[in-house]
């Protein structure tokens, strides 16, 4: 790969440069050891974490996520999973900023209901405005509505993260057309967040021109999470390279032989 192609593989979010276009969650693993092994195998540099009450009275020496994933080795992306209002999500991320010593890069996700975990885009937009004004770099989970995606970009979000399908559903890319419209219209990175089930889903997202994919359950709930993490790494790279290479045009009604039509033995 020449230097230019290599350069194009670098990935920029809010002024920070990353090599991997795969972002991963840290939930649902068997234990912290498996969490770390899967993440390292995936090559992901950005990892999402949730903010929750600490367990008071817990043994001080009991390991925590931070012991296994030191914030100096990974870029933490504290999220607002479980928040249903703009106020709750802003509060959560301000606490996260204090927890992580002024860390500004965050994932905003404001849910609409507990059955579908579908985003409440009105609350999301309100929260995004407040957080951007407060100095946060906001990567935002949203629906695949192109108008909403554009509005989130316009209020200053540094990455727009539309769902491929419902969180944790593994249903894959259900509306590639909407994702294409979003990718076409936005100038900030577009990262598919939620719904990826297996490697081909991640490749499809990247082939559409997404800048990255964020996933958790697809790896953590695989029978062999470490192997799936490796598969996802390859699928993201393959999809990205296929996008950069530019696919051949589709010919719906006319085949085209790969071998010469001249010199056939008579």
């Amino acid at each position: 790969m020449d230097k230019n192609e290599n350069q194009s593989e670098l990935f920029d979010i809010a002024g920070q440069t990353f090599n991997s276009r795969l972002l991963v969650g840290t939930g649902k693993y068997k234990d912290f050891k498996e969490t770390k092994s899967a993440i390292d195998e995936s090559g992901a540099e950005i990892v999402t974490v949730a903010i929750r009450r600490v367990n008071i009275g817990q043994d001080k020496n009991q390991p925590s996520l931070i012991d296994y994933l030191p914030p100096k080795d990974y870029t933490y992306l504290p999220n607002t999973a479980g928040c249903y209002t703009a106020d709750d999500s802003v509060r959560t991320l301000r606490l996260a900023r204090e927890l992580l010593d002024g860390h500004k890069l965050v994932k905003l996700e404001v849910l609409g209901d507990s059955e579908t975990l579908y985003p409440n885009v009105v609350e999301t937009l309100n929260a995004a405005r407040i957080l951007v004004k407060d100095g946060f770099d906001v990567m935002v989970y949203t629906s695949d509505d192109p108008i909403m995606a554009k509005q989130l970009e316009d209020v200053g979000c540094c990455a727009i993260m539309p769902l491929a399908s419902l969180i944790g559903s593994g249903m894959g890319i259900l509306n590639p057309w909407n994702l294409e419209i979003i990718i076409d219209r936005l100038s900030v990175p577009v990262i598919v967040d939620a719904g990826v089930g297996t490697a081909s889903d991640a490749s499809i997202a990247m082939e559409l021109g997404c800048d990255g994919v964020l996933m958790n359950t697809a790896i953590a709930a695989a029978k062999n999470p470490i192997l799936m993490a490796r598969a996802m790494k390859k699928s993201i790279e393959a999809g990205r390279e296929a996008f950069l290479a530019g696919r051949m045009p589709k010919k719906l009604y006319q085949a085209s032989p790969s071998s010469p039509t001249k010199g056939i033995i008579e």
Binding site: G25, T26, G27, K28, Y29, F32, T35, T48, V49, A50, I51, R52, R53, V54, I56, S64, L65, I66, Y76, P78, N79, A81, L95, A96, L99, L100, I167, G168, A194, M215, N216, T217
Partner: peptide, 10 residues
Amino acid sequence: LEIIGAVGGG
């Protein structure tokens, strides 16, 4: 008081 930390999440 609310005392919070980082835990595994997506």
